[in-house]
Simulated scan of single mutants.
Amino acid sequence: MRIAVIDGQGGGMGKTIIEKLRKSIGEGIEILALGTNAFATANMVKAGANEGASGESAICYCCKTIKLDCIIGPIGIICPNSMLGEITPTMAECIFSTECRKYLIPVNKHGLYIPGVKDMQINDFIEEIVKEINSSKNT
């Protein structure tokens, strides 16, 4: 199973996702850390990603050419100009158009409000995603 974790800014959410995936699933998956910047990518690689790449060109290349089973990241990865402009319209389009399952963590930022999710913490969403991936990996 090949999973891309996409994050920006400091890569803190991506780092947490990768750590929880490694703890739950171990080395049985390949994790590709795609950061909008080198700092985010470095933090995700330190957390246990197999490989990392940074920037618009790398993210679009990986989404278009690498067979991914899923993408995980904050909902902003499909919103043009989100994450303080780190997600370009081209990146959002490439990520959204990639033919794989996308696990999007709802964060009440980017001018988005998603009803029904305000009572959950980011760690709760990540745990739910890890459980889902673990169960789909075994089927």
Rank of each mutant, 00 (worst) to 15 (best):
M1Y: 08
R2D: 15
A4R: 00
A4I: 05
I6Q: 00
D7V: 10
Q9N: 07
G10E: 06
G11K: 03
G11F: 08
M13V: 14
M13T: 13
M13W: 01
K15I: 00
T16C: 09
I18F: 00
L21R: 08
L21I: 10
R22P: 07
K23P: 06
S24W: 01
I25C: 03
I25A: 07
G26L: 02
E27F: 03
G28S: 09
I29D: 06
I29T: 00
E30Y: 12
L32W: 05
A33G: 02
T36V: 04
A38Q: 11
A38F: 05
F39I: 05
F39C: 04
T41M: 09
N43I: 01
V45Y: 01
A47N: 06
A47E: 10
G48F: 02
E51C: 05
G52W: 04
A53P: 06
A53H: 06
S54H: 04
G55Q: 08
S57Q: 15
I59N: 03
C62V: 10
C63P: 03
K64N: 15
K64V: 05
K64C: 09
I72W: 03
G73L: 02
G73R: 01
I77E: 03
N81R: 10
S82A: 13
S82V: 08
G85L: 01
E86G: 00
T88K: 02
T90K: 14
T90V: 12
A92G: 05
A92Y: 01
A92M: 01
F96K: 13
T98H: 02
R101F: 06
K102G: 13
K102D: 08
K102W: 04
Y103L: 08
Y103Q: 03
V107N: 09
V107E: 07
N108Y: 11
N108R: 13
H110Y: 14
L112F: 13
L112G: 09
V117P: 04
V117Y: 00
K118I: 04
D119S: 12
M120F: 13
I122L: 15
N123T: 15
D124E: 15
F125A: 10
E128W: 05
E128F: 12
E128S: 15
N134T: 13
S135A: 14
K137M: 11
T139L: 08
T139S: 11
